[in-house]
Amino acid sequence: MKLDLHNHSIKSDDGRAKVDNYCKWIAKRGLDLDGFVLSEHRQWDGESDYRALEDEYGLLILKASEVETEYGHVLVFGVNDDLVNAFDFADVRIPLRTVLAEAKRCGAFAVPCHPSRAIVGMFSHFDEFGPAEGVEVVETLNGGGRGTENDDAVHLAAQYGYRGVGGSDAHIVSHIGRCVTEFDDDIASIEQLVTALQGDRYRALSVDLD
């Protein structure tokens, strides 16, 4: 199944897309997508309930977070109460080692996103801080990637032995589905997504929507 692992709704300060409009867009365009993840910036959205939209559109809609570390931005899948209390999601200087360790302790999974992007990408900090320990997976394909960012991410992920996922990083509806992750196994919950990410039965895909 194909999931877009990185998107933002109006819950994010820079998000301009309502979740129901993402669903309508996917249906209207007939996108080859089984679901998507909302990874709101610097917060955990514990309130929103998208089950009615899931039923209406036949999509899996999961929630995650995008937090900020000294190594750049990191997607966190499987956020729960323990993890919410482990560090301040609004802090823009959370140590990456804290995010990785606490995610692991709480049964979640952390994935540095757009890793080849300047300043907000993990690889851009390797010269200063050295390779990050404990990273297993990076977002090799990001829908907002410019120039050679995604090619560089694929190359560097292979060099460091990281597995890769894809996410659109959509902030407006028409950007969803540009980069996705294809899983060999079915996923029906955030727990199953975390389990899948811990394995290696998936791959990042870039989708030409034009």
Binding site: R42, E68, V92, V120
Partner: peptide
């Protein structure tokens, strides 16, 4: 008032 980091560096909103 909040802070975030973008492609061009840290910003205050």
């Amino acid at each position: 008032i909040y802070e975030k980091t973008g492609r061009s560096g840290p910003m205050m909103f």
